[in-house]
Design a protein around this nucleic acid. Sequence first.
DNA 1: ATGGCGTTGGAACAACGA
Length: 279
Amino acid sequence: MRIATWNVNSVRARTGRIVDWLERADIDVLAMQETKCKVDQFPVGAFEEAGYEVEVHGTNQWNGVAFASRLPMSEPRVGFANMPGYANTPPESGELPLEARALGVTVEDVRLWSLYVPNGRELGHPHYAYKLAWLRALLDDTVAWLGEHPDEPLALMGDFNIAPLDTDVWDMAAFDGLTHVSPPERDAFQALLDGGLVDVVRDRGEEGFTYWDYKAGRFQRNHGMRIDFILGSAAFDELVVDASIERDERGGDAPSDHVPVVVELDIETSMDDDRPMIF
DNA sequence: ATGGCGTTGGAACAACGA
Protein backbone atom coordinates (compact mmCIF):
# COMPACT_ATOMS: atom_id res chain seq x y z
CA MET A 1 0.00 0.00 0.00
CA ARG A 2 1.38 3.37 -1.02
CA ILE A 3 0.34 6.47 0.92
CA ALA A 4 1.32 10.10 0.48
CA THR A 5 0.93 13.61 1.84
CA TRP A 6 0.86 16.78 -0.28
CA ASN A 7 0.14 20.42 0.41
CA VAL A 8 -1.51 21.07 -2.95
CA ASN A 9 -2.03 24.86 -2.57
CA SER A 10 -5.59 24.79 -3.96
CA VAL A 11 -7.17 21.55 -5.14
CA ARG A 12 -9.28 23.37 -7.73
CA ALA A 13 -6.31 25.11 -9.33
CA ARG A 14 -4.42 21.79 -9.65
CA THR A 15 -7.04 19.05 -9.97
CA GLY A 16 -5.57 17.61 -13.16
CA ARG A 17 -2.01 17.58 -11.86
CA ILE A 18 -3.03 15.91 -8.61
CA VAL A 19 -5.11 13.14 -10.22
CA ASP A 20 -2.47 12.54 -12.91
CA TRP A 21 0.18 12.15 -10.25
CA LEU A 22 -1.95 9.79 -8.15
CA GLU A 23 -2.24 7.44 -11.11
CA ARG A 24 1.35 7.85 -12.30
CA ALA A 25 2.81 7.31 -8.83
CA ASP A 26 0.43 4.43 -8.06
CA ILE A 27 -0.80 6.04 -4.85
CA ASP A 28 -3.51 4.30 -2.81
CA VAL A 29 -4.14 7.03 -0.23
CA LEU A 30 -3.30 10.74 -0.43
CA ALA A 31 -3.58 13.22 2.44
CA MET A 32 -3.99 16.75 1.06
CA GLN A 33 -3.56 20.12 2.76
CA GLU A 34 -4.43 23.67 1.70
CA THR A 35 -7.26 22.52 -0.52
CA LYS A 36 -8.59 26.09 -0.18
CA CYS A 37 -12.27 25.39 -0.73
CA LYS A 38 -15.52 24.50 0.98
CA VAL A 39 -16.72 20.90 0.95
CA ASP A 40 -19.27 21.57 -1.80
CA GLN A 41 -16.60 23.20 -4.00
CA PHE A 42 -14.25 20.18 -3.93
CA PRO A 43 -13.74 18.56 -7.37
CA VAL A 44 -15.03 15.16 -6.24
CA GLY A 45 -15.88 13.96 -9.76
CA ALA A 46 -12.32 14.16 -11.10
CA PHE A 47 -11.10 11.92 -8.27
CA GLU A 48 -13.98 9.46 -8.59
CA GLU A 49 -13.39 9.10 -12.33
CA ALA A 50 -9.84 8.00 -11.49
CA GLY A 51 -11.13 5.49 -8.94
CA TYR A 52 -10.60 7.49 -5.75
CA GLU A 53 -13.15 8.25 -3.06
CA VAL A 54 -12.63 11.43 -1.06
CA GLU A 55 -13.14 12.65 2.49
CA VAL A 56 -13.17 16.44 2.60
CA HIS A 57 -13.02 19.10 5.31
CA GLY A 58 -13.13 22.76 4.31
CA THR A 59 -15.04 25.79 5.52
CA ASN A 60 -13.81 28.70 3.35
CA GLN A 61 -11.01 29.77 0.98
CA TRP A 62 -8.31 29.17 3.57
CA ASN A 63 -6.76 25.96 4.90
CA GLY A 64 -8.77 22.84 4.03
CA VAL A 65 -7.69 19.19 4.38
CA ALA A 66 -8.82 16.06 2.56
CA PHE A 67 -8.11 12.43 1.71
CA ALA A 68 -8.36 10.68 -1.63
CA SER A 69 -8.27 6.88 -1.45
CA ARG A 70 -8.88 3.94 -3.77
CA LEU A 71 -9.25 1.71 -0.71
CA PRO A 72 -12.22 2.02 1.64
CA MET A 73 -11.96 4.77 4.27
CA SER A 74 -13.73 4.51 7.63
CA GLU A 75 -14.05 6.43 10.90
CA PRO A 76 -13.63 9.93 9.44
CA ARG A 77 -12.99 12.52 12.14
CA VAL A 78 -12.80 16.29 11.78
CA GLY A 79 -10.32 17.85 14.20
CA PHE A 80 -8.90 16.35 17.38
CA ALA A 81 -9.60 16.67 21.10
CA ASN A 82 -9.25 20.21 22.46
CA MET A 83 -8.03 21.59 19.11
CA PRO A 84 -7.91 25.36 19.56
CA GLY A 85 -9.58 27.84 17.21
CA TYR A 86 -8.42 31.17 15.86
CA ALA A 87 -9.67 34.56 14.75
CA ASN A 88 -7.73 37.75 14.01
CA THR A 89 -10.37 39.66 15.95
CA PRO A 90 -11.83 37.33 18.57
CA PRO A 91 -15.63 37.54 18.78
CA GLU A 92 -17.35 39.03 21.84
CA SER A 93 -18.64 35.58 22.78
CA GLY A 94 -15.06 34.41 23.25
CA GLU A 95 -15.69 31.25 21.21
CA LEU A 96 -12.91 31.04 18.60
CA PRO A 97 -13.87 29.35 15.32
CA LEU A 98 -12.17 26.04 14.54
CA GLU A 99 -10.22 25.98 11.28
CA ALA A 100 -10.10 23.15 8.70
CA ARG A 101 -6.66 21.83 9.59
CA ALA A 102 -7.10 18.21 10.73
CA LEU A 103 -8.91 15.21 9.27
CA GLY A 104 -8.51 11.58 10.31
CA VAL A 105 -9.51 8.38 8.52
CA THR A 106 -8.78 4.66 8.83
CA VAL A 107 -7.62 2.63 5.81
CA GLU A 108 -6.71 -1.06 6.03
CA ASP A 109 -6.60 -0.74 9.84
CA VAL A 110 -4.06 2.10 9.58
CA ARG A 111 -5.11 5.34 11.30
CA LEU A 112 -4.13 8.33 9.16
CA TRP A 113 -4.30 12.09 9.76
CA SER A 114 -4.02 14.90 7.23
CA LEU A 115 -2.68 17.90 9.17
CA TYR A 116 -2.09 21.52 8.22
CA VAL A 117 -0.28 23.06 11.18
CA PRO A 118 -0.86 26.82 11.60
CA ASN A 119 1.82 29.01 10.03
CA GLY A 120 2.52 31.25 13.03
CA ARG A 121 3.10 34.35 10.87
CA GLU A 122 5.58 36.10 13.21
CA LEU A 123 7.23 35.38 16.54
CA GLY A 124 5.03 36.94 19.20
CA HIS A 125 1.99 37.18 16.90
CA PRO A 126 -1.24 35.69 18.29
CA HIS A 127 -1.07 33.21 15.40
CA TYR A 128 2.28 31.99 16.77
CA ALA A 129 0.74 31.29 20.18
CA TYR A 130 -2.10 29.56 18.34
CA LYS A 131 0.41 27.40 16.46
CA LEU A 132 2.06 26.25 19.68
CA ALA A 133 -1.26 25.61 21.44
CA TRP A 134 -2.50 23.66 18.40
CA LEU A 135 0.65 21.51 18.45
CA ARG A 136 0.27 20.93 22.20
CA ALA A 137 -3.30 19.71 21.77
CA LEU A 138 -2.17 17.49 18.88
CA LEU A 139 0.52 15.99 21.10
CA ASP A 140 -1.93 15.34 23.94
CA ASP A 141 -4.46 13.69 21.63
CA THR A 142 -1.76 11.60 19.95
CA VAL A 143 -0.26 10.39 23.23
CA ALA A 144 -3.74 9.51 24.50
CA TRP A 145 -4.52 7.57 21.30
CA LEU A 146 -1.22 5.70 21.43
CA GLY A 147 -1.93 4.81 25.05
CA GLU A 148 -5.23 3.27 24.04
CA HIS A 149 -3.88 1.65 20.84
CA PRO A 150 -0.22 0.84 21.61
CA ASP A 151 0.19 -1.75 18.86
CA GLU A 152 -1.76 -0.09 16.07
CA PRO A 153 -0.31 1.71 13.08
CA LEU A 154 -0.86 5.49 13.17
CA ALA A 155 0.61 8.22 10.97
CA LEU A 156 0.41 11.99 11.28
CA MET A 157 0.94 13.28 7.77
CA GLY A 158 1.07 16.81 6.53
CA ASP A 159 2.53 20.28 6.44
CA PHE A 160 3.93 20.85 9.92
CA ASN A 161 5.24 24.34 9.14
CA ILE A 162 8.35 23.55 11.19
CA ALA A 163 11.89 22.95 9.94
CA PRO A 164 13.20 20.69 12.72
CA LEU A 165 16.90 20.79 11.80
CA ASP A 166 19.19 23.58 10.63
CA THR A 167 19.76 21.54 7.47
CA ASP A 168 16.02 21.67 6.79
CA VAL A 169 16.34 25.24 5.48
CA TRP A 170 18.71 26.46 2.78
CA ASP A 171 20.33 29.10 4.99
CA MET A 172 19.73 29.53 8.71
CA ALA A 173 20.90 33.15 8.47
CA ALA A 174 17.90 33.88 6.26
CA PHE A 175 15.57 32.65 9.03
CA ASP A 176 16.98 34.67 11.90
CA GLY A 177 14.04 35.82 13.99
CA LEU A 178 11.45 34.07 11.83
CA THR A 179 8.96 31.33 12.47
CA HIS A 180 9.44 27.66 11.48
CA VAL A 181 12.89 27.42 13.08
CA SER A 182 12.32 28.86 16.56
CA PRO A 183 13.17 26.67 19.57
CA PRO A 184 9.55 26.46 20.83
CA GLU A 185 8.36 25.21 17.42
CA ARG A 186 11.22 22.71 17.21
CA ASP A 187 10.51 21.60 20.78
CA ALA A 188 6.88 20.97 19.82
CA PHE A 189 7.99 18.82 16.88
CA GLN A 190 10.49 16.92 19.02
CA ALA A 191 7.76 16.32 21.63
CA LEU A 192 5.80 14.37 19.00
CA LEU A 193 8.85 12.17 18.44
CA ASP A 194 9.38 11.80 22.20
CA GLY A 195 5.69 10.94 22.47
CA GLY A 196 6.21 7.80 20.40
CA LEU A 197 6.34 8.84 16.75
CA VAL A 198 9.10 8.32 14.20
CA ASP A 199 9.97 10.49 11.18
CA VAL A 200 9.72 7.47 8.91
CA VAL A 201 10.96 9.29 5.79
CA ARG A 202 14.09 10.83 7.28
CA ASP A 203 14.81 7.57 9.10
CA ARG A 204 15.07 5.82 5.75
CA GLY A 205 17.75 8.19 4.54
CA GLU A 206 15.55 10.26 2.27
CA GLU A 207 16.96 13.77 2.04
CA GLY A 208 15.94 17.06 0.51
CA PHE A 209 13.42 19.85 0.82
CA THR A 210 9.65 19.58 0.42
CA TYR A 211 8.81 23.27 -0.16
CA TRP A 212 10.25 26.09 -2.24
CA ASP A 213 8.75 29.59 -2.33
CA TYR A 214 7.43 30.68 -5.71
CA LYS A 215 9.38 33.92 -5.44
CA ALA A 216 12.89 34.86 -6.49
CA GLY A 217 13.81 31.63 -8.27
CA ARG A 218 13.94 29.74 -5.02
CA PHE A 219 13.39 26.32 -6.60
CA GLN A 220 16.00 26.87 -9.30
CA ARG A 221 18.52 27.76 -6.58
CA ASN A 222 17.25 24.94 -4.32
CA HIS A 223 16.46 27.49 -1.64
CA GLY A 224 13.84 25.33 0.03
CA MET A 225 12.60 24.00 3.34
CA ARG A 226 11.76 20.58 4.73
CA ILE A 227 8.45 21.07 6.51
CA ASP A 228 6.23 18.21 5.26
CA PHE A 229 6.45 14.99 7.24
CA ILE A 230 5.03 11.56 7.86
CA LEU A 231 5.34 10.71 11.56
CA GLY A 232 4.45 7.12 12.37
CA SER A 233 3.84 5.03 15.46
CA ALA A 234 6.18 2.09 16.10
CA ALA A 235 3.63 -0.25 14.52
CA PHE A 236 3.45 2.01 11.45
CA ASP A 237 7.24 2.31 11.26
CA GLU A 238 7.54 -1.48 11.09
CA LEU A 239 5.35 -1.53 7.99
CA VAL A 240 7.36 1.03 6.00
CA VAL A 241 9.43 -0.51 3.21
CA ASP A 242 10.19 2.61 1.13
CA ALA A 243 10.01 6.40 1.34
CA SER A 244 10.48 9.22 -1.15
CA ILE A 245 10.18 12.97 -1.63
CA GLU A 246 8.74 13.63 -5.09
CA ARG A 247 10.92 16.60 -6.01
CA ASP A 248 9.98 16.48 -9.70
CA GLU A 249 6.44 17.61 -8.84
CA ARG A 250 7.78 21.11 -8.15
CA GLY A 251 8.49 21.44 -11.88
CA GLY A 252 6.27 21.69 -14.92
CA ASP A 253 3.23 23.90 -15.38
CA ALA A 254 1.55 25.52 -12.38
CA PRO A 255 3.05 23.39 -9.60
CA SER A 256 2.19 23.61 -5.93
CA ASP A 257 4.97 25.18 -3.88
CA HIS A 258 5.14 21.87 -1.94
CA VAL A 259 5.91 18.38 -3.28
CA PRO A 260 4.40 15.04 -2.26
CA VAL A 261 6.04 12.81 0.35
CA VAL A 262 5.40 9.07 -0.12
CA VAL A 263 5.77 5.91 1.93
CA GLU A 264 5.16 2.35 0.87
CA LEU A 265 3.78 -0.03 3.48
CA ASP A 266 4.11 -3.80 3.55
CA ILE A 267 0.35 -4.29 3.36
CA GLU A 268 -1.14 -6.36 0.58
CA THR A 269 -4.17 -4.77 -1.01
CA SER A 270 -6.36 -5.59 -3.96
CA MET A 271 -4.55 -2.75 -5.76
CA ASP A 272 -1.29 -4.72 -5.68
CA ASP A 273 -2.91 -7.26 -7.94
CA ASP A 274 -3.35 -6.73 -11.66
CA ARG A 275 -5.90 -9.51 -11.85
CA PRO A 276 -9.54 -8.56 -11.57
CA MET A 277 -10.92 -8.64 -8.03
CA ILE A 278 -13.91 -10.77 -9.07
CA PHE A 279 -13.45 -13.89 -11.16
C1' DA B 1 15.96 46.67 2.89
C1' DT B 2 12.61 45.14 -0.18
C1' DG B 3 10.33 42.45 -3.51
C1' DG B 4 10.01 38.56 -5.99
C1' DC B 5 4.74 34.77 -6.78
C1' DG B 6 0.38 32.42 -6.39
C1' DT B 7 -4.58 31.58 -4.85
C1' DT B 8 -9.15 33.16 -3.31
C1' DG B 9 -13.30 36.15 -3.02
C1' DG B 10 -15.39 39.26 -5.68
C1' DA B 11 -14.90 42.68 -8.88
C1' DA B 12 -10.02 46.57 -6.71
C1' DC B 13 -7.59 45.00 -3.69
C1' DA B 14 -6.93 42.50 0.86
C1' DA B 15 -5.86 38.12 3.26
C1' DC B 16 -2.80 34.52 3.47
C1' DG B 17 1.34 32.05 2.86
C1' DA B 18 6.61 30.48 5.27
